[in-house]
C-alpha cells in the first residue's frame, strides 16, 4: 500500500510539472501582456521598459527556468494587474472555491444517491421514470441559467437567500446548487446502474433468504458496494467543479479562484494564471489520491491487498 501511495505521489508530481510547462507555454501564445497593461498611446520606449521590468524580453526557456525555480520556493511572481504576489491572490481565493465545490459535490451526492438507489429498487416504476426525467433536465440546463433561476425564485420572489456574495452559510446555498446540479444526472445513473448489478448478486439474495430487513439490505449492504464506481468518479467531479466554477462564481459574485483565473487569462496576467492553474492541478492530483486511498476504506479487499 505504501509503495502504491509513493508511486501515485510521484505520478502526481510529474503531472504538475507537465501542467506547468503546458500552461506556461499556452499563456504566452495568447500575446503580449504589456500592450494590454499600457494606454494605447504609450510610446515604444515605455513599452520596452515595462517588458524588461517583467522579464518578458528574455528567451522563453529562460523565463520558464526562472519561473520554475521561483515556484519551487513558493514564489509565483507578482500579478501584472493587481501588483501583489500571485500566490497571495490565489490562496486568498482558493478556500472560497474549495468550499463552493465541496458543498456542490455534497449537494449533488445528496440528491443522486437516494435517487439512484430508489430508481434501482423501483426499476421501471414512477420513481425510476421521474429520476430519468429529473436527470435529463439537470443535464439540459446550463449552470448559469440554473443560477439565474434560483436568484429569481429564492432571492427576488421569496427573499429567502442573498442574491450574491459570500460570507455566511446562506450565501453558499444557491451557488452550490447551481454548480452541483449538472453532475446529479450522471451520478444518479452511476448509482442506479451499480445498484442494479449489486441487487442481483448472490449475497443480496442470500441476505433476503435469511430474513435480513430490505432496508438494511439496500441502504447498508448493497449501497456500500454500489458506491465504489461513484467514489471513483468523485475526484473527477470535484476537479471539474474546481475548474468549472467560473460561470457560477460570476453569476453569484462569488469571490473564488475560477473567476480570478479566467479574468487573469483575458488580461494576460501570466503569474496569476500559472499559479491558479497549478494549484487547480495540485488539487486534482490530491483529490484523486484521496479517492484511491478511500477505496481501501470502502472495500476491505483493497485495504488488505487482496
Amino acid at each position: 500500500m505504501l509503495g502504491y501511495f509513493a508511486r501515485r505521489l510521484l505520478q502526481g508530481f510529474m503531472s504538475i510539472v507537465g501542467a506547468s510547462i503546458v500552461i506556461f507555454t499556452i499563456t504566452r501564445l495568447t500575446g503580449d501582456p504589456v500592450v494590454l497593461m499600457l494606454p494605447p498611446e504609450a510610446p515604444p520606449d515605455v513599452i520596452d521598459a515595462l517588458r524588461i521590468k517583467l522579464g518578458l524580453d528574455l528567451p522563453l526557456w529562460r523565463q520558464y527556468l526562472i519561473f520554475a525555480g521561483d515556484a519551487l520556493q513558493g514564489d509565483f511572481g507578482r500579478s501584472y494587474r493587481w501588483e501583489m504576489p500571485a500566490l497571495d491572490l490565489v490562496l486568498d481565493r482558493l478556500p472560497a472555491t474549495i468550499l463552493l465545490s465541496a458543498v456542490a459535490l455534497a449537494f449533488s451526492m445528496a440528491v443522486a444517491i437516494p435517487f439512484g438507489v430508489l430508481s434501482a429498487v423501483n426499476r421501471g416504476g414512477w420513481v425510476d421514470r421521474f429520476g430519468k426525467v429529473f436527470a435529463m433536465a439537470g443535464q439540459a440546463m446550463p449552470n448559469f441559467w440554473v443560477g439565474l433561476l434560483l436568484i429569481l425564485i429564492f432571492a427576488i420572489h421569496l427573499d429567502w437567500l442573498p442574491a450574491y456574495g459570500a460570507g455566511t452559510p446562506a450565501h453558499v446555498v444557491m451557488p452550490a446548487i447551481a454548480l452541483g446540479w449538472y453532475p446529479v444526472a450522471a451520478q444518479t445513473r452511476i448509482v442506479r446502474s451499480a445498484m442494479l448489478d449489486v441487487l442481483d448478486s448472490d449475497y443480496i439474495r442470500m441476505g433476503r433468504s435469511v430474513g435480513t430487513p430490505e432496508f438494511s439490505l439496500v441502504w447498508k449492504y448493497a449501497l456500500r458496494n454500489a458506491a465504489i464506481p461513484l467514489i471513483t468518479m468523485l475526484g473527477v467531479y470535484f476537479a471539474a467543479m474546481l475548474g468549472g466554477s467560473f460561470v457560477v462564481e460570476v453569476v453569484f459574485a462569488w469571490p473564488g479562484l475560477g473567476r480570478t483565473v479566467v479574468e487573469a487569462l483575458f488580461a494576460r496576467d501570466f503569474p496569476v494564471v500559472q499559479a491558479g492553474v497549478l494549484f487547480a492541478a495540485a488539487m486534482f492530483v490530491v483529490a484523486n489520491l484521496l479517492v484511491d486511498l478511500s477505496y481501501g476504506i470502502v472495500d476491505p479487499r483493497i485495504r488488505h491487498g487482496r
Binding site: 439565474l148 436568484i151 429569481l152 442574491a163 456574495g165 453569476v251 459574485a253
Partner: peptide
Amino acid sequence: IPEDLTRVA
C-alpha cells in the same frame, strides 16, 4: 457584482 442580472437582482 460583475454579472448584470445579479446586480439588478
